[in-house]
């Protein structure tokens, strides 16, 4: 039996989010729900990237007064994952905005949010 620590747990949660998002994007019909599923998928990827850098019993990668500067490099968490995720979260907002804008235009044109009807190309 593997002992479950925080890193293992978060990897499981990330895999769960990726699969839920993938399933939602593939099998749901509503376009808005596809967008929500897309955000879930990107959340899962973000979580996996952050979990990669976690150090068991480590410290936050901000040098705080009163701590030892010599012990900082060994104990601080890996910073490369969070650095990418920080930009990814904010860029995720704008990509979601683009998707919603396209959805509004599609709704004006086809009068429906169903992807199956939009793909058939029936005008309103």
């Amino acid at each position: 039996m593997i002992e479950i620590n925080l890193q293992l747990l978060c990897f499981m949660a990330a895999a769960l989010l990726v699969v839920i998002g993938l399933g939602g994007m593939l099998f749901l019909d509503n376009i808005i729900k596809k967008i929500i599923a897309f955000t879930l998928l990107s959340d899962g990827v973000n979580l996996a990237l952050v979990t990669l850098g976690y150090v068991e019993g480590g410290i936050v990668s901000i040098l705080e007064p009163g701590t030892s500067a010599g012990a900082f490099p060994e104990n601080a968490v890996l910073i490369f994952g969070p650095g990418i995720v920080l930009t990814n979260i904010v860029i995720g907002v704008s990509t979601t905005a683009v998707l919603v804008a396209v959805t509004m235009v599609l709704y004006r044109r086809y009068g429906t949010l169903k992807a199956s009807k939009v793909l058939k190309g029936e005008r309103k």
Binding site: Q7, G53, S61, I62, L63, P73, E74, A76, L78, I79
Partner: peptide
């Protein structure tokens, strides 16, 4: 990947980065 990620070059960065700005990120 659990516990198998090599720290690699990260300690080097961690050693130098705080003297630039205390927030490593």
């Amino acid at each position: 990947l659990n516990g198998n990620v090599a720290r690699g070059i990260s300690p080097e960065y961690n050693e130098l980065a705080p003297y630039e700005a205390p927030n490593n990120l």
